[in-house]
């Protein structure tokens, strides 16, 4: 259903990129700006511009941030100007990109209090709610932390609860409801308001499948659907309203899934990238029938980046364009077209 319009285009960067994100208000609004967070030999965030009229894919580096205190573990764009960046050292940065003078300026930086204890606060993931007034991040040492974005103080509010296993992913489902994926393959739903109630409201897991959850993604319009990618390559879709068995896409990934995302226009489709460098397009369309159950669907999958053999660290979609970065310094750009 989705066809590759042209071959993936690629350029080589001079640093190892850990995350790539479009700078846009939403996934459907076209943009030509994107930012890349670097992982290893540099530790910063850079903003790039792509010339739409250009025939060749030659993005132009607009600006770079100063060196951050660790490698970038997650980037999320609030809108076309503001981005949040988390690092392996337990800090969250809030950057603002100015279109006028093409500069990236730091607005705030939050660090957790016990930043002296090394490595314990490796931030694995974060998310903010739709009002953008609260940001939640989860760490490797099992803590769930909240930041009030509009408050004057730079305090980090840590939930007095330790999951005892590393938390790999977090998502806001509703205004106050978060889903947390951990390294035992469970997804726990928390109510962010009731911080004294030290118990998750619901725990979802796939029986017989306990490999760590690496990444999660929201359904674009059904907030209760959550897609999870596991370390052993299973892609499953949970309905967080009930603790039913999840819908399992397939075992096509032989190796860990690195990131997963619902397609912004056609939510029957998912895209995932994996450790072995493949970029799968999952087509679970119900062929015109209105089926709400995922169980009744057939799934077709197609690898869109067969030429790549190196771990895809991250990818992001914007309108009909997809960017992906691999572990071998390469930035890919794909365009695809909806054939409906």
């Amino acid at each position: 259903m989705y066809e590759n319009l042209n071959k993936p285009e690629q350029i080589y960067l001079n640093f190892n990129a850990s995350k790539v994100r479009w700078l846009s208000n939403s996934k459907v609004m076209p943009t030509n700006l994107f930012c890349i967070g670097s992982g290893e030999n540099l530790q910063n965030v850079s903003v790039w511009k792509m010339d739409q009229n250009q025939v060749d894919f030659e993005p132009q580096l607009l600006c770079e941030s100063d060196s951050l205190d660790g490698m970038v573990t997650e980037i999320k764009a609030k809108n076309s100007e503001e981005i949040f960046v988390s690092t392996s050292n337990g800090s969250v940065y809030h950057f603002k990109y100015s279109h006028f003078d093409q500069k990236l300026s730091l607005i705030t930086k939050w660090s957790s209090a016990e930043s002296h204890t090394e490595n314990l606060n490796f931030i694995n993931s974060f998310d903010f709610n739709s009002d953008c007034d609260e940001l939640c991040y989860v760490t490797e040492n099992g803590t769930i932390n909240f930041i009030r974005l509009h408050s004057q103080t730079n305090n980090v509010n840590t939930l007095d609860y330790n999951e005892l296993c590393s938390l790999n992913s977090v998502l806001y489902l509703k205004q106050f409801e978060i889903a947390v994926g951990d390294s035992l393959g469970r997804v726990k739903i928390w109510d962010a308001r009731s911080r004294d109630n030290k118990k998750s409201s619901l725990t979802l897991y796939l029986e017989g499948e306990s490999s760590p959850i690496v990444c999660m993604a929201n359904h674009p319009n059904q907030q209760h659907m959550v897609a999870c990618g596991n370390l052993n390559g299973i892609l499953s879709i949970y309905d967080v309203r009930s603790n039913k068995r999840p819908f399992i896409m397939s075992h096509n990934h032989s190796e860990p899934i690195m990131e997963v995302c619902f397609h912004p226009f056609s939510s029957d489709n998912l895209i995932s990238c994996s450790f072995d460098g493949s970029l799968w397009f999952w087509n679970a369309s119900s062929k015109g029938d209105l089926k709400t159950n995922w169980e009744d669907r057939t799934v077709n999958a197609k690898n869109y980046l067969e030429s790549n053999r190196y771990t895809l660290n991250s990818f992001d979609i914007n309108n009909d364009q997809l960017l992906a970065v691999n572990n071998n310094f390469c930035l890919y750009k794909l365009r695809y077209q909806n054939l409906f």
Partner: peptide
Amino acid sequence: RAFKRGMYGTALSWNVR
């Protein structure tokens, strides 16, 4: 390592693997 830090869950996840 996880066990020494009291991260039983992480330790368990490695152990199962």
